[in-house]
Design a protein around this nucleic acid. Structure first.
Length: 561
DNA sequence: AAAAAAG
């Protein structure tokens, strides 16, 4: 490991190093902050890991993995953490955040050993995949360190984890649920945890983990070092940070949400029944190396995964209802290139370390605008171009404009020829419909029957031009990528495809209904029949309680009530 | 609205 490659080909080598560290932190930058600055700035002599005060064996581990230069957050945070100070880090995944706490923690913990069931440090992560990645970091850098770590996550054997705890653990990496579970079983004590990392605090908040986190923090000794990381610093997050931290050093390496310049984005407006066909056409017309395909619901992940597989695509599925072993195995296959397409829920939207995605497809427009940024941020890394396409229906246009106002950038409209156009009336109707009720399947179904233009009414310019009329303020309409319209794609969906899509839609709706209603349950609603209010007669005290009217032998009365 | 996390 010399400086040679760095000096001769700085852009390549540095990008790679930087990106690898990003990778170690778990993600592509949803928001590209550092890279443009880096290329624009007249590069001053950059720090190396040797400048940060890390120990010799640790540095050896870092160098062997091939890293020379720390990322900005690493450069700023590592010395502070080594001093023992609290840190409030405002950084997206992809900034090298993980190494910024993993490395100094290893040095802080080196030299003494943990007692059984008394871990010396704790890292809280919101998802199992993230926890696994942090654990992998300890393994990667800690080749020459004698540190134990244990991964406490749900969905895996508890006895293995208990065994590990009994061995004595220096670093505990956990998701909140399983940690509390094991604590309540008396398998782990937290009284000796002198270092605490709360990672992805904003996501913990989104996921409703904060009560758990507060509970866990209350089990830790008050005299400890706390490192708190969040991608955003909303008021609520700051309040939390105030509660957990003491005189923290604030380190911020982020910018207002914006989409990385290396990502080419587009959104296609289609009819609900054309979504799958639209996706298939997009995939076929693009040079897809490997892509994530996001759905909003777990069931839709399953449905779409099956549908793509039936259409001959090489796909996998990933969501939180799948067995943990399957989750990790699928992710591994995808990373290894055995699967080209991964249909997933928002489990994979943040933090998961999948390098070098060529594409992200949003089969559904995400409900929350930030999620869009996180999703498409999985592509377009390391200066490579990424492409992100979203499939939207008329009902989704409000969500799309929310995203556009968040990023401050319109998403260019793209056309997928040959599909039923979305009419101006439909857009107007969707725009005027109240959010919540009125959107969704029943309304779409009615419209589908009455208003959808016949196939022969689909002219070359009719649908698209009407769509554009609807959005006169969109100058980017002509910026749509031409390669999305290869001539051979301008043909209607094959009839059997269309039939299959409809069948899948029906099936999905059936399942929806089943789930919504569940097995038929009969109840009384708010009206409690009078007979239920009559006390069970006791031999002596029959007249003690005054109950009016209905007698048990008069069922008509109770039915009326 | 949905997803995530404890079975």
């Amino acid at each position: 490991m010399s400086d040679q490659p760095d000096a001769t080909a700085p852009s390549v080598a540095e990008t790679e190093h930087y990106d690898d560290l990003n990778t170690s932190a778990g993600a592509a930058p949803a928001v590209d902050i550092a890279r443009p600055d880096e290329s624009a700035a007249p590069a001053p002599p950059r720090a190396t890991f040797e400048d940060l005060g890390l120990s010799e064996p640790l540095l050896r581990g870092v160098v062997e993995v091939g890293y020379i230069h720390p990322t900005p957050i690493q450069e700023q945070a590592i010395p502070v953490v080594l001093m023992g100070r609290d840190v409030l880090g405002c950084a997206q995944t992809g900034t090298g955040k993980t190494a910024s706490f993993v490395l100094p923690m290893m040095d802080i913990l080196a030299g003494s050993r943990a007692k059984a069931r008394m871990p010396r440090s704790l890292i809280l992560e919101p998802t199992r995949e993230l926890a696994l990645q942090v654990a992998e970091n300890f393994a990667k850098y800690g080749q020459h360190m004698k540190l134990n770590y244990a991964l406490l996550i749900g969905g895996e054997s508890m006895s293995d984890q208990t065994d590990a705890l009994n061995q004595g653990v220096d670093v505990l990496i956990a998701t909140p649920g399983r940690l509390l579970d094991l604590f309540e079983r008396g398998r782990v004590m937290l009284a000796d945890c002198k270092v605490l990392v709360i990672d992805e605090a904003d996501r913990m908040l989104d996921m409703g983990f904060i009560p758990d986190v507060e509970r866990i923090v209350s089990l830790l000794p008050p005299l400890r070092q706390t490192l708190f990381f969040s991608a955003t610093m909303a008021a609520e997050i700051r309040k939390l940070a105030d509660a957990f931290l003491q005189n923290p050093k604030e380190i911020t390496v982020s910018a207002p949400a914006s989409v990385a310049t290396t990502i080419t984005a587009g959104v296609a407006l289609v009819q609900p029944h054309d979504k799958r066909e639209a996706l298939r056409r997009l995939i076929r017309s693009e040079d897809v190396q490997n892509a994530l395909i996001f759905c909003n619901r777990k069931r839709d992940v399953d449905v779409l995964y099956k549908s793509l597989t039936k259409h001959g695509f090489q796909a996998g599925a990933l969501h939180g209802d799948l067995a943990q072993s399957v989750r990790f195995a699928t992710l591994e296959k995808f990373k290894a290139g055995e699967l080209r397409l991964l249909v997933c829920s928002d489990v994979a939207a943040r933090g998961i370390d999948i390098g070098g995605l060529s594409h992200v497809f949003n089969f559904d427009v995400p409900f929350r605008d930030e999620d869009y940024v996180h999703r498409i941020g999985r592509t377009g890394r390391a200066g490579r171009e990424g492409r992100a396409f979203t499939i939207a229906t008329a009902d989704d246009v409000k969500l799309v404009s929310a995203i556009e106002s968040l990023t401050g950038k319109p998403i260019p409209r793209i056309e997928i020829p040959g599909l039923d156009p979305v009419t101006a009336e439909e857009l107007a109707e969707a725009a005027s419909a109240p959010r919540g009720r009125g959107r969704g399947r029943p309304a779409a179904k009615g419209r589908e029957r009455e208003e959808r233009p016949r196939r022969e009414a689909r002219g070359g310019e009719r649908g698209p031009s009407r769509v554009r009329e609807e959005r006169p303020a969109r100058p980017e309409a002509e910026a749509r990528p031409a390669e999305l319209r290869p001539a051979e794609e301008v043909r209607p969906p094959r009839r059997e495809d269309r039939r299959r899509d409809r069948r899948e839609d029906r099936q999905e709706r059936r399942e929806d209904r089943r789930d919504d209603l569940g097995p038929p349950v009969r109840g009384f609603g708010d009206a409690i029949p009078a007979f239920m209010l009559i006390p069970i007669p006791r031999p002596q005290r029959e007249a003690a309680t005054a109950v009016p009217a209905a007698a048990p032998e008069d069922p008509a009365d109770s039915a009326a009530a």
